[in-house]
Each structure stands twice: as C-alpha cells, then as structure tokens.
Nucleic acid binder design. Structure first.
Lengths: 342, 342
DNA sequence: CTGTTAGCGCATTCAA
DNA sequence: TTGAATGCGCTAACAG
C-alpha cells in the first residue's frame, strides 16, 4: 500500500479536502497561506507519498524547467574525455548545482537544437559548436545563451586574449633568429584530418586557432624568424592519435624543428612523447610550449611551459553569467606557466 | 519578419486552415494522412518557421521525453574528471546518441531524484550513488532503471566478477609467503577520509570494494601470507590527493611493503609516483597492481599490471539494456592487462 | 487567506 | 481522411 497511487495535485487536494490551488501554494508560494495550514498540507502529502507538483507540467505551465543545455563543441565521446572540457564542466557544474540547475548534455555536432530547446531554460556553450547550423540556431533562439571561447552577438561570453597569449608564449620559446619553428595547430582548417596548412588563406577566420596563429606568427616575425608555410600543421581534434601523427611529421621533417608551438597541451604532450621516442632532449634539442594548462602539463616530465587558461574558473564565470542574466562578455586573464619544456 | 511568431500547433493549423490534429499527424503519424497533404503541411511549416510540436508539451502529454538521467555515483565535479567514469559515459552516449536520447547529468550525492524524475524516461546509473536515499528512491520509482557496478532488484545491471578479478590479479602480484602486502582500498568504509581500516567488520557490505577485498584476502591466504589489519587502507575517492596520502603512509610504514594491491588505477598511479619519489624500483623493490584498465595505465612507466574492466563496452551495454528494456543483469568479462609494474 | 477557472501546447479518441 | 472535444498536471488571476 506504499506505492498506493500516482498522486496529482488535483487528486491529492481532493483527498485532503482542499482546493488544488491551496496545495500548489503550499509547495510554491508559502506566503499565500498560513504557516500552520501549509505545514499540515505538506505533512499530509509526505505521508501519502505525494512529493510535489509534477515537474514536467510545471515546466509547461511556467515556461521554466531549471534545466540548461550544456552545449559541447563536438560529440560527447570526445568532449567528456578532453581534460580542458572536463575542467570547464567541473566549473560550470559547481555553480549550477548550487542554483538547483540541471545540465543536459548536448553535442555541438548535432543537427539542430530543436530536439531540446523546449525543455531547457537556455544554453551554456563550451567552445564553438562544430556544426555551424547550431550556431545559427543559437543566434535565432530567444532563450538565454552564454558562450565560452566564441561569441554570439548579444550574449555573454568568456574568453582569454588568445592572440596575446600565443604571442607571449611564443616569444618565450623563440630564442634566436636561427630557430627552426614548427606550429602544431588545432582546428585551423575545416578538415577532419591531420595535414599541413600550406595556404594561410584556408585558415578559418575568427576562430580561437586563428587568433593563436596570429600571435605565434607575430612573435616569430618580431624575432626575425620566418615560418615557412609547410611548417604549420592542422590537427582536427586534440587527441593523442591525431596529434602524434603531426608531431611525427614535424619532427621527421627537414630541417628538424627545434621549437614546437602547440595549440593545446595534449598536442604538446604527444609531441613530448614523440621527442622522447626519438631520443631528443627537451628542452636542449627541442623546446616545446603548450596551451591550456591542464593538470597533466604539471605532472609530466619535463613539465610543460604553457598558457594557463584557468579553465575551471572560466567555467564558473560563464555559469554565473547565465544565472545572473549577464549580457556583456568578459576577457579573462591567463598566466604563463613556467615548466621545464622550454 | 523571420522570427515572426512563436508558433503553436494550434496557431499554425489556423494559419494553414487545417485542424490542429492534422498538423500533429503530419509530424507524428505519417500514416494518418496522404503523403501529398503531409508534405504540403510540413513544407508550409518549415516556411513559416514552425519546427514541430513543442517538446515540453509533448512530453507532458505522452509521458515520454527522450531524456534519460545519467546518475553519477557522486558529485559531477569528481565524476567528470574520473577517467573510468568518462570512459563509461563515452560508451553510454555512443548508444543514446544513436537513439535520439539526451542525457541529463545527475549527481548521486543529491538529496532526491524528485527534482528530475518527472522530466526523464528513466535512469542509467554509473556506480552506486553515494547517497543511500537515492538508491531507495530508485528502487521505488516506476520509471525504467539500469545500473552499473551495483544492483537494484528487478533492474538490468552490468558488473564484472570483482572478487574473482581481484583474486586473479593478487595471485599474480604475490610471489612468496614472505611478501609484505598492503592494500590500498577504495571506499571500503563509510568515511570521507583516508585512513586505515583496522576492523574488517567496518567494511561496507555488498560493495564493489568489499568484493575486491575478499578476492585479495583469498589470494593472500592461499599463498600463505597473512595481511595484518593495519595494512589495509581506506581511500574515500579515487583522486591523486587522497591516494597519495595512503600510498605515502603505506610505503613509510614498517615493514615496508613490497606488494601494493590497489583498488583503482588512479590509486596505483599515485603509488607509482610515490615509489619513484622514494627511489624504489618497480617492480624489483615494489610490485604494484591496479584495477580498471584506464588509458593512462598503459602510458605510464612502467605500465601497470591491472584488471581491465572494458569500461566503454560496459557503458555501451548498459545503455543498450536501457533502450531494449532488458531486465536481467549481466556479468561482463574482464581481462588481466600485463604491464611492467608486477 | 481560500477556492474557482482558464489556459500552457499538445495527442488522442470519436464522429463525421 | 479530417475536425471538435477532452484532459495530461499544473499555475496565476481573480473573486470570494
């Protein structure tokens, strides 16, 4: 008799001989009835096994669900295992959890936001969705949207100054005009394959990668080094497999590079591995810099010199922008993490 | 004029001079109207910017949302960064994505499932929720539930034979009756702190940890080694910080252990690190075995000898159980991964 | 302070 | 094949 019935607001009200509005108020608007009455009703409901108004119905009626779509830039498989994304999610969830907001995972590679848009109060986007259609829809929706590492007009966003950061870290890596520099880029091209870039005109505009590339090139130019176009690689996603291919190509090319500018720590770690395999000493024979500041960049040997983005803090910040209905974006600070790799 | 209106089934039907049911049928039940008419309607809707029935209302009406709660054993912060959990999620999401099911993240440390139960079609649980109240509620709900690494009566589950696996790996680690064994256990006690166990009666019953412990002890007994009770540690969660404390305590205790049986790879990795720090050679001075088979266990040096749980496959399997309404549980195979640590 | 009522947007009978 | 009516479970006005 425990699971006696699937109570509804109406049925429970009937049972208690009060109007359904009173029960509703007891749960949602304490000020609308006496404390005593409210407690009686709540107690009776608990007793009978009614745990409060149905959330789905509530959501339909109120137009608010306390569910937010967490838009990952690509498919879930990849993003969950990416240390940067995980760290960001950690930051986001620490805030949403506190506000009773639930997160619905959503892949940026999906066809359309239509399958979830009616369920959620808005979208927290971690990186630009790989499907441009999604960005369009995000632009068009009237739900709340906040973004990280890319911008949508009229929406709050958080981002570091990628060009400046890349410039700084590259300056640190480049020692002389005779350095042989290679760039291991992340998502520079709209191509799902590891390959060289060759033509800078192919580089996607306004992306994080493009800004970092500008920073690298600026630093090189300033140091009197010219980076040939066959010294720039495109890596489609930040995984061991794809990165190692690029690292191998780069390190086996002639002249062998002595500076590797990597657009993510994972790429840098793959390069470090490859360097070890080849018997290259880091940083004596090869200097490597990364980007992101993931935990492993501190634990590996030698540790990585890299741009620390403070991803968890960025995650917290963007989530706070969401709950506070903030509109303006924010450029967040980064720090240079001094490691042994350069 | 693009974003002209927020169409509803009713308003769009009115606009098209058909009944709302017809539009509904056009979207949901193709067999209920002529192909031609359907296509006309669908085209007109697309034209006007109506993207189909409101999902929230549909969910209320049909009692189905295509959203499933992914119940993580603890808070999101921890679980997302745990390599085992990430891998499982990868497996789960590969299946759910294929079936158009969205995942709602839910922390096993939450107070109650009530805040989400009305939104979701069911629950996929990754490991036993730390809050026992959640398990009770999961037991009581009439929504679909499937579990991994713990069981709920009447629900499908996947799990390896933890005791047998622990037994096997321990047998491999123990070489002689003179071995000095220490066990670094994971969640053996209901205590949020790293500490020694001392009293075996305090060990939580029917948990994954308890089964593994039985396997270890069985192997030790069989090999003629007695494991003193002050040689068993409890680690509250599988993180670097907590694990390293236990590893340090164990390795600095007297007599210094020469065999470390670790209940997770992360713990084993922390121990490996600590061993390096102390100048102990692995496996000559100290043999270490892990549990799980995470990716890093293969990349570290020396690589870990461990129980490979095939977590991604387990994730896929449990998700398939969910979509197929499977009822019975399944004991999944494990393999022993031979590494250099033992 | 309490109860009545009209939708939120939709899917499903049941007639036509 | 189509259309009118009913209610999924709830909340917010409003009236009492």
């Amino acid at each position: 008799m425990e699971t006696k019935k699937n109570w509804t607001l109406k049925s429970i009200a009937q049972k208690l001989n009060v109007s359904s509005a009173t029960v509703s108020n007891a749960f949602n608007r304490p000020d609308q009835l006496s404390k005593k009455r409210r407690n009686e009703i709540l107690a009776a409901c608990a007793e009978l096994g009614y745990f409060g108004p149905n959330k789905a119905a509530q959501s339909l009626r109120k137009g608010k669900s306390n569910i937010v779509a967490l838009v990952l830039s690509d498919n879930l498989e990849y993003m969950i295992t990416d240390p940067v994304a995980s760290t960001v999610i950690t930051g986001v969830s620490s805030i949403t959890e506190k506000h009773g907001i639930h997160l619905l995972l959503f892949a940026g590679s999906s066809d359309s936001i239509n399958s979830v848009v009616d369920f959620v109060d808005g979208f927290i986007c971690i990186g630009a969705p790989t499907n441009p259609q999604i960005i369009k829809e995000l632009n068009a929706t009237d739900k709340k949207v906040v973004t990280m590492d890319f911008a949508i007009e009229g929406c709050a966003s958080v981002m570091i100054d990628n060009q400046q950061a890349a410039y700084e870290i590259a300056k640190r890596a480049i020692n002389s005009a005779n350095d042989r520099i290679a760039i291991l880029g992340l998502r520079l091209l709209d191509i799902e394959q590891t390959c060289r870039v060759y033509n800078l005109d192919d580089v996607l505009d306004y992306t994080v990668a493009s800004h970092r590339l500008k920073g690298y090139l600026q630093a090189a130019t300033e140091s009197g080094v010219e980076i040939a176009h066959d010294r720039i690689w495109n890596i489609p996603e930040s995984t061991q497999n794809t990165a190692v291919i690029a690292a191998r190509e780069a390190l086996s090319s002639n002249p062998q590079p002595n500076v590797l500018l990597c657009m993510s720590d994972r790429i840098a770690l793959a390069a470090l591995n490859e360097a070890n395999r080849l018997g290259l000493r880091v940083p004596e024979d090869l200097r490597i810099v990364g980007f992101d500041g993931i935990e492993e960049s501190r634990n590996c040997s030698p540790s990585l010199t890299t741009v620390c983005q403070h991803s968890e803090e960025k995650g917290r910040l963007i989530a706070e922008f969401f709950v506070n209905d903030t509109q303006e974006g924010q450029v967040t600070p980064y720090t240079i993490q001094e490691g042994g790799s350069c």
